[in-house]
Write a protein that binds this DNA or RNA. Structure first.
Lengths: 108, 108
DNA sequence: GTAATATTGTCAATTATTGACAAGTTAATT
DNA sequence: AATTAACTTGTCAATAATTGACAATATTAC
């Protein structure tokens, strides 16, 4: 799996033989806008990830991974970021976690 | 280096003995808002990265890496994304590049 | 051809971000 | 402890970005 998130949705939808209108209804979304999402011309709204997971019986955590991975990739591509960016992201992520742990320790 | 971007700016600023007001002027920004940025209560706007690089004589690419790495880390932390997300991001990044190459090949 | 499906363009409405300034706190100095 | 400089916080109008909605057009399948 390494398509964009829009391509991924289209794959899921066509595999299940759904029309844009049908899936759009499940996602509480205009079919025209779903078309744009599949074609990478609009963003899929994070708040609909749960509906998407239900519609296709997908693991929510896995879906989140695909979704945010896609977002980060787009940003990096748009701004021509070096691959190093992802390493920094991981470090900073760990840093945020460590700060949170420290703060929790102080509070109690 | 693994502080947040706000902490990083504060470090640079205090190392150079600048006040919020002084740096804010260089960045064409209100000092109150710079304070919020340093304290993680507002986002640093990407369009000011160039001014920041100049103010502290930093490598722009390196700064971008810190900046976007910070953004991704915050998102992942906020949404409790798995570390796998970054691997997916890298794959999708490569996928976007490969698509672009193919499109370029078709065009000419 | 036509009917179903998908795409594109547009725009008002909603939502998010920013700039600006006032009011407050903290820290250092005398 | 009064003064001043430095910093923080709250607020809100202005600006910008995103979304929902729908019409118009294009594509595909029969």
């Amino acid at each position: 799996m390494n398509a964009t998130f829009g391509e991924y949705i289209r794959q899921l939808r066509t595999d299940k033989g759904l029309t844009l209108t049908e899936l759009a209804a499940l996602l509480k979304l205009d079919s025209a806008n779903l078309s744009k999402i599949e074609n990478g011309k609009r963003e899929f709204d994070e708040k609909r990830l749960d509906k998407l997971a239900i519609a296709f019986d997908l693991d929510f955590e896995r879906l989140k991974t695909e979704y945010f991975g896609d977002q980060f990739a787009k940003k990096m591509y748009e701004y021509k970021c070096s691959p190093e960016t992802l390493i920094v992201a991981e470090e900073k992520m760990n840093y945020l976690k460590s700060i949170n742990i420290k703060q929790a320790e102080i509070k109690f």
